[in-house]
Amino acid sequence: MSLPPDIIDAILRLESQTLVRQVEWFPEIGSTNDYALSLADQSDIELPRLIWADRQTAGRGRSGHAWWSAAGALTFSLLVDPQRWGLRPEQWPKVSLITGIAIAEALSRHVPGQSVRVKWPNDVYLNDRKVCGILTEPTPQRNPAWLVIGVGINVNNSFTTAPPELRQTATALCDEGARDCQGVDVLLSVLSQWEQQIQQLAATPDSLQTTWQNWCWLREHRVRITTAADVTEGHCQGIDDAGALLIETARGLTRHYAGTVRRLD
């Protein structure tokens, strides 16, 4: 298939300037994560591999709304072998967290002066609205597994025509003052930051807790975390050394590995 020239240019930059060994680009695909997961069946593929699509028709982790896959969104999946950094399975959940930090770092450079934060466990918020979602999945057919890190960032898919309820909760870079932002530029800075973050995670796993404090959108706020089993409410105290969310409640400090969090104030 012949690729548009600007895409060819982008791929060359990605393969030479970042940790990615190979890029696969699609004008349209069902889900980059699904495709990346299927690659795990192959034994001789060069990693890390980047699956990058202009549009997704069946993207998972969209939180159910269409703007993620609208034209202008940056959607990609990164397929990596965690062994490369010596990461044991118990540290894999933290990969989601450091991906958020990496993206937050990268986006800050594109919208300087705006408020960029991470919302536990895998969202990035820009001026108090969601601008990025992350979905990390281990490849089930390999043991030890590879990791697929799926990312969706609202870059140029503007929300100005979205319903008001949606505009309250989500936003895009272009709506927050980022001028002439190209998807590939964001991708390059994200990958660069991500490489630094994963190396830091491997070298000093304890530093995540502190780094997270600086980016945490929930810390010191009243939050409510809901799972299928129960609901807990209290003041967020950041994360613990395993990456679990800490909430100070009337019963004491509770830790949570899973659940949907809402900020109450």
């Binding site: 399975p89 894999w92 959940p93 933290k94 990969v95 989601s96 967290l97 536990w120 466990p121 895998n122 992350i134 979905l135 990390t136 999945e137 281990p138 089930p140 043991n143 597994a145 990456g243 679990a244 590995y257 899973a258």
Partner: peptide, 11 residues
């Protein structure tokens, strides 16, 4: 198991 929205199957 789910941790940080990453779901892992234990086989």
């Amino acid at each position: 198991l789910e941790a940080m929205k990453m779901e892992t199957n234990i086989a």
